[in-house]
Structure formats: C-alpha cells, structure tokens
Design a protein around this nucleic acid. Structure first.
Length: 481
RNA sequence: CGCGGGGUAGAGCAGCCUGGUAGCUCGUUUGGCUCAUAACCAAAAGGUCGUUAGUUCAAAUCUAACCCCCGCAACCA
C-alpha cells in the first residue's frame, strides 16, 4: 500500500462551473478511485481560486461584499463536484486564513530568488488594467470599452527569477522526472521554457487590493500564480508540516491534473517555485484537452456555452460520466453535441450495457441461477493487465474502451452459447453457461467501477443478491423525438 | 520563416516511431436469433490514406516542398 496525492486545478470563481472543470474533476476522480480500489491511500485535492481584480469587480457590480460573492461561487463548485459523483478528500479556498498565511511564509522562503523591477506596459485608465501588446495592436491603441487611448505606464512589481531554475526544470522534464502527458505537450513546454522570462509575482496594492499582502511590503499584493499554485502544498500544511508525514507522505504529488491552457504555468512557474523551496517536483503533469461544442471552442464572448447541469439532468450522472470519460479523449480536444450525447446514451449505455444486464438477469431469474460472487478489484486488475497498463498511463478514455469491449463480448457470448435453448436440452449445462456469463459481466462491472461507480455497484448487487431478479432497466431508453 | 497539433469510408477516430493484403466505433443495407429496453449477433456495401515529387522490389507509414484546418502566443479548464 502506498500513498498517492492527486490534484486538480483550482478554478477562478468569477463564473459558474463549465464543462472544462468537469473534465478535470472526472479524470482525477477516476484515477483516485482506481488507486483506492487497489488499496492505496489517496489524497485528492480540489478547491477554488478567489483573489484578484476580476473577482473584486464582479462582486462590486453584483453589489455584494467580496467575501460573500466568493463564498457563494466557491460553494457552487463544491456542489458541482458533488453532483459529478466526484469524491475529493480536500477542498481548499485561497481565501482561507491558513492558506494566506502559508503563502506569505512561502514568499519569505523564496526571497533570495525575488527581485523588484518596474514593469512598463500599455495601461487603460478606465479599466485600471494593463493590457498585452497583442490587445494593444488589435484595438489600435484605443480601449474599446472606454474609447480612450492606452497610455504607457510603469509600476513596481516583484519578479521570480525563473532563470535560476531553467536548467534544472529542463532536465527534469526531458528525463521525465517531471513527466508531462501527453508526450506532444512536453515538446511544447520545453520550447516555452527556453523562451520564458522571469515572471511577475506581485502587483501594487492600489491596482490590486483583493489579495494576499507581500510580507514586508504593504504596498504590494501577491499575484495570482504564486497564490494559486501554492495551494497544492498549503493544503498539506506546508511549510509548518514540512518534516511531518502529513506533508512528506504525499508530496511530491503522484499526478497533477490541469487543462492544456494552464499547463505552462504548472510546467514552468510551479517547478521554479518548488525548486526554490528545495522541494521535489510532482511526478506527472497530466494535461487534458478542451471540450468543443459543435466543433467550436466554447466561450462566453461567443455565447456558445452549455450548462453542464443541463447536460447532467438529461440522462443523469452515469450518462454524464460515461460520455465525458469515454468519448471526450483524455488528452485531445473533443466535441460535444447533443446528437452524440443522445447516441452514446441510447446505443451504448441503454443497448449495450443496460440491455445486457436486463437479458442476463431475466435468464438467470427464469432459470433460478444461483448468485455469483464478484471478484475483487485487485484480482480483476491482475487478470486484465492491458486495462491496468492504460490506467497507469492515465489513458482513461482508452481504458474505458477496454471495459466496453468486455461488455460487448458478453453480449456476443450470450448469442454464441444460446443459453435459452441450451437450458431446454441440457439444463445443467444451461445453468453453467449462465453462471459463467454472469461471472464475465461481473468482471466488466468491477473494471467499470472507477468510471461509473453507481452503475457498477448496481450491477454487482443484482447478480450477487440472494436471488437474481430482473431489475428495472438501468438506462431506460429515451423516447425518440 | 513564432510554437504546436491535425488532414485516412457519410461522421468520429486508430494505424505512421519499428515500410509489406487499410482497421475500429457510429450510421446504412441484408441475414440470423427470440433471453432482452423494437434490444442482441453476423455479413455486406462504402476509402485515389490533403497535394506533388523523391527513396525503395514495396510508402498511409521514410524524405522534401506545398495546400488547407485548428489550438497557443502570460493569466478564460
């Protein structure tokens, strides 16, 4: 038995949960359930990122105290996680007093790698914000919201010397000591790393009031990356716990799940922070793709977003987990459409699996087949090395495909063995056949448990009950529109 | 020459590293079965593997050039 620490990105609470967050949670949840089922102790972190101007502004425009606004939104995420059937062990808020205090302690430990410098850039007085060169060019030097020209402004920032750690980070990534998945992202990151400048980790308080104060400089506030990234270790009680098992048992993290868009921060800034603290780097950074809607990128500005709760409601939780874990590729961008969702539910969950459970249970019930005991997860994993190999490689959608092959093979076997006619000519052989079919289905159900825990449990219950009885359909087929 | 990914049957994808009869899922058509949620099983049809040139006995697979799509480019998973 070993200890595993899994992390998910902490969402910025200036909006409601969307499908991308769901992916993050589901992937981590599958792996967490897999490791737990193997008997490992898993610490599974989640949380919310709550500082910064955007939040502050949102709260102001909603006419709410910022504490209340962040609390409300943070709760939305907590609730969302529960609705997804995801079971983390921890939930951190960057506004937690303990976190804030620890970030300041971390800052102090980083001090020899921090220096102050003036940042100069294009600034809009109306927005009270710096903008990027690209934005400047796109808007021809005039703020679209305020119709005023951008001005050159400089302000004091503290910088973290990424340059001190570049060679080490590079070596760690190249050697897979810090493994970046998928492989093609590794090349991307190495290239970015080479070009990466030192990174700004503070803002003047007058521009950013909602944040953690820089220790020893009340005029400055710690900027998002140091604040947010630190959550992965402050949740373990670092730095106070640095020599106690609470921390050392779990750090370095086994896997950190992030979206592809924030991989760079986790592969460059985060390792730099860790190295500066003399801490080991996480073993694996797992970066997933984005969910596309009808082939297009979802964005609030385009207005083509979809509410995950709406998707969740249509066919319930197992269908949601099924679609997003199997048909949304673990690493690449994948498409969501209602048509695909309907097809996956009807053809796969209802027809392949639901109907299989139904027909087999009916056959067993009619012929009084004795219940079969379910194998344990570790047993089944040993029997299915290809499955565990895919899980270990964190290729969850492929592992799910493997499980589905099992499910389909049971349907095939039923047709091959024809127990309904065998039972008439040779009842003993018929019952034996059914028992072995049930055993195969149970094996598939056990393999299914990290993905669809509820469904897996239901199936196991049906065939291990004192008396096998045909249940209500697991996935009632949706009426065709 | 900013970086990266991709272009293979109607759709979605695998195969490419380690050249040698082009494969999977869905959809379509036909047949089988009747235990089952009009579900299940089998078979068939359907592809100039983005374009061009090269290497080779042989290229989806290696090389080069080109065309097209899509992400990223410092703070939207």
């Amino acid at each position: 038995m070993s200890k595993k620490y899994l992390t998910t990105a902490i969402p910025y609470v200036n909006g409601t949960p969307h499908l991308g967050h769901a992916i993050d949670y589901l992937l981590a949840d599958v792996y967490s359930r897999y490791e737990s089922a193997l008997g490992n102790e898993v610490k599974f972190q989640t949380g919310t990122d709550e500082h910064g101007n955007k939040i502050f502004e949102k709260a102001k425009s909603a006419n709410l105290p910022v504490e209340e606004y962040t609390k409300t939104n943070s709760d939305l995420f907590r609730d969302f996680i529960k609705k997804l059937g995801v079971s983390p062990t921890d939930f951190i808020r960057t506004t937690d007093a303990a976190h804030k205090h620890r970030v300041q302690l971390i800052w102090q430990r980083l001090e020899q790698h921090i220096y102050a410098k003036d940042y100069e850039g294009w600034y809009c007085n109306g927005c009270e914000n710096f903008i990027t060169e690209k934005e400047y060019a796109d808007n021809n030097g005039v703020c679209p919201d305020h119709q005023t020209p951008y001005i050159k402004l400089s302000e004091k920032n503290y910088y973290l010397k990424i340059s001190d750690f570049k060679p080490k980070i590079k070596a760690a990534i190249e050697s897979d000591e810090l493994k970046i998945l998928p492989e093609f992202r590794k090349h991307e990151v190495l290239k970015l790393l080479a070009d990466s400048p030192d990174v700004s980790i503070s803002r003047p308080k007058k521009n950013l009031s909602w944040g953690i104060e820089v220790p020893g400089d009340p005029s400055q506030v710690i900027y998002v990356w140091l604040d947010a990234l630190s959550n992965y270790i402050t949740i373990l009680g670092y730095p106070e716990t640095e020599h106690s098992p609470e921390f050392t048992d779990f750090w370095p993290a086994a896997v950190q799940f992030v979206g592809k868009d924030i991989l760079r921060f986790h592969a460059i800034i985060w390792p730099a922070i860790l190295l500066a603290l003399n801490l080991p780097l996480p073993r694996v950074l797992h970066s997933h793709g984005h969910v596309l809607l009808n082939g297009a990128k979802m964005s609030k500005s385009l207005g083509n977003t979809i509410d995950p709760l709406e998707v969740l409601e249509k066919y319930g939780l197992p269908a949601f987990r099924y679609y997003f874990l199997r048909h949304i590729d673990t690493f690449a961008d994948s498409d969501f459409t209602w048509e695909k969702y309907d097809a996956a539910y009807n053809n796969e969950l209802a027809n392949d699996l639901g109907n299989l459970v139904q027909r087999l249970a009916t056959l067993c019930s009619k012929n009084s087949v004795a219940p079969v005991s379910a194998p344990s997860f570790p047993e089944v994993v040993i029997e299915n090395p290809d499955y565990s190999a895919l899980m270990e490689k964190l290729e969850f959608s492929n592992a799910f495909d493997y499980v589905w092959e099992k499910v389909k093979s049971v349907n095939k076997k039923i047709d091959d063995e024809k127990p309904w006619s065998l039972i008439k000519t040779d009842p003993a052989a018929g019952v034996a056949s059914l028992s072995s079919l049930v055993a195969s289905l149970l094996e598939a159900a056990v393999l299914l448990s990290p993905f669809l825990p509820e469904t897996s449990e239901k199936i196991i219950k049906i065939f291990t009950a004192e008396k096998i009885v045909a249940p209500e359909p697991l996935f009632p087929k949706a009426l065709k529109a």
